[in-house]
Simulated scan of single mutants.
Amino acid sequence: MKHHLFTPPGQQALEAVMQRRPLLAFDFDGTLAPIVTRPDDARVAIGVAHRLEQLAEHLPVAIVTGRRVDDVAPRLGFDPHYIIGNHGAEDPEQPALPPEVYIALTDKLNALRLKIETSAEALASAGIQVEDKRHSLAFHYRLARDRDAALVTIETLLRGLDPALASFGGKCVVNVVAADAPDKGDAVAMLVARSKSDAAMFVGDDLNDESVFESAQPHWLTVRIGRDDPLSRARFYLDTHSEVATMLQKMLALLR
């Protein structure tokens, strides 16, 4: 990341991608909605939802999130063309993999589920909330009194993790998925093809969004919320999610 999106180079890149009539894809938490203490409280602000609804009248709009599809849909305030959940592994309209493969993916998590059951007391004592999203598991520790100690508890639980599984961090969360499950990069590439778009614009804020940033074609536009990761492969950044509304307004102006 070298430039803020609202600099001349960022404006030029935004104009260029909008001329291509791109797929517009967005992460949810920390991007369209602020990071909140309790994930159940997350919602898209009315103004942002209204702008997204206007954009969706002209271009394909997608939400690509770590949440379950049925969890995120009621939080949006508008109806996107596509919602992909579980970090890219959950596609309700057209599964990227046959049903039997998805069953195999979730089955790979069963041994870890059993381990979680036997460690439930220790996890609760450390302030860790476990979310089972079927295609993935999330260990939330934002509410822990000692986040460092909570992270150690999670890492200890995941020690010797089955090679068929993969774990990755995030903002006060550790996620576990099947190692061969589709990721967000796979999901966005698939949606570009499905929507017959010539390009994509993707906005995200966390480690699991890097698979899109890293695999993006040169003519795509990638934007990261926050400049806290100097190693991010996103081309541009916004300082906070509060700038998303302004970005969407600029996109609407370019359409007009």
Rank of each mutant, 00 (worst) to 15 (best):
A89V: 08
P22Y: 05
T246L: 02
E93K: 15
A126T: 08
E155K: 05
E117Q: 11
I128K: 00
A120W: 07
R235W: 00
D162K: 09
P34H: 07
M201L: 15
D205T: 04
Q19L: 03
E131K: 12
H81Q: 15
R75S: 04
A62Y: 05
I154C: 01
E100F: 14
D186E: 05
G226C: 09
P22F: 03
P95N: 01
A13T: 00
V72W: 10
A89Y: 05
N208Y: 06
D40N: 15
L165A: 06
K196M: 05
D239K: 15
L255S: 11
L52I: 06
F78S: 04
A104Q: 13
D107W: 09
I225T: 02
D91M: 08
R20Q: 10
V44I: 14
D70V: 02
D206W: 11
E100G: 02
T37R: 15
P99F: 04
R145H: 12
Q11G: 00
A16Q: 11
A124E: 07
H135N: 05
A45N: 06
L76F: 07
H140A: 00
T31H: 04
T118V: 06
L59H: 07
V101D: 07
G185F: 06
P98S: 04
D206R: 04
Y141T: 07
A166I: 14
G85P: 09
L252E: 15
P80N: 03
